[in-house]
Design a protein around this nucleic acid. Sequence first.
DNA 1: GGCCAGGTGGCCA
DNA 2: TGGCCACATGGC
Length: 303
Amino acid sequence: MNMNRQDGIVIEVPKEFNFQQNMNYMSRSSNECMFEIRDNTIIKAISVSDKDYLIEVSEAADGNLLLRFLGDAQIENENAYDDVIRYVRDWFDLDRDLKPFYDMAQKDPLLQTAVVEFYGLRNIGIPDLFEAVAWGIIGQQINLTYAYTLKKRFVETYGRSMEWDGHRYWIFPEAKDIAKLTVEELSSIKTTTKKCEYLIKVAELLEKGELSKPLIKSSGSIKEAEKRLTSIRGIGPWTANYVLMRCLRFPDAFPIDDVGLHNAIKHLTGSERKPTKEEILKLAAPWENWEAYATFYLWRYLY
DNA sequence: GGCCAGGTGGCCA
DNA sequence: TGGCCACATGGC
């Protein structure tokens, strides 16, 4: 492995990977505050093993990913490299074999065009559980543009940041800091009282260790994982499946109540109305165990 | 100005 | 279980 800090570290990608497709997805909102797209590279502040790093991910000449450390992050040992590489592999879902998905999808009426048009797109994840849940709660029942505005307010009020080359890069607020807040304090970001309650409660559960990635992963099935999440106030079936899909990486996570999914299906089928739940279940039957990727690809039709 | 947002909890039958 | 309804405000 190339460990030269100056040249960057090459992270090998699977065959079913296309840098530009993932960039296109990540460029979907100009109001995204958790990373920056600049000169066809992604720059992001991350917290891994209790250390903050500023990283740049770009495309290497051979099509692999190139990881560079920016700023004055102290790389103390080889383990730190491994931690960050693992983070990036998880973030881009590089260790999943998409061939079975593509084999299935090219025969599927709803997906066959999508997998050609977006070939090489990965389910870009939200590795931090608190961020994934909070983003889900914040985004409930509001338009995506406004959701990005609220997230930005939340992050810039309660997160910490690193500055580099005249830009500021944010790390998502930590659960332990949000758990201390009152609803009144948190409502300064101007979201609903209920969402403030939910966010603080989730932060408390994470802080107490009553909610964690290993705990959810240890669930016997997706149904149990979903149940564990929906037992928490503010997390319904949509949020639970969203989190299982973007953070826990359950391939069969399926946010079937998602209005974006409904609109994508409406668009692709040329229907005048949104599909019913029964119609979606029927359309999605062939997607078994690939519902998360199917949903992720169909979302690409919305921007 | 009015409808719609990457929903959820609570109440009711 | 399944059907309503309040929530609560911005985007377009």
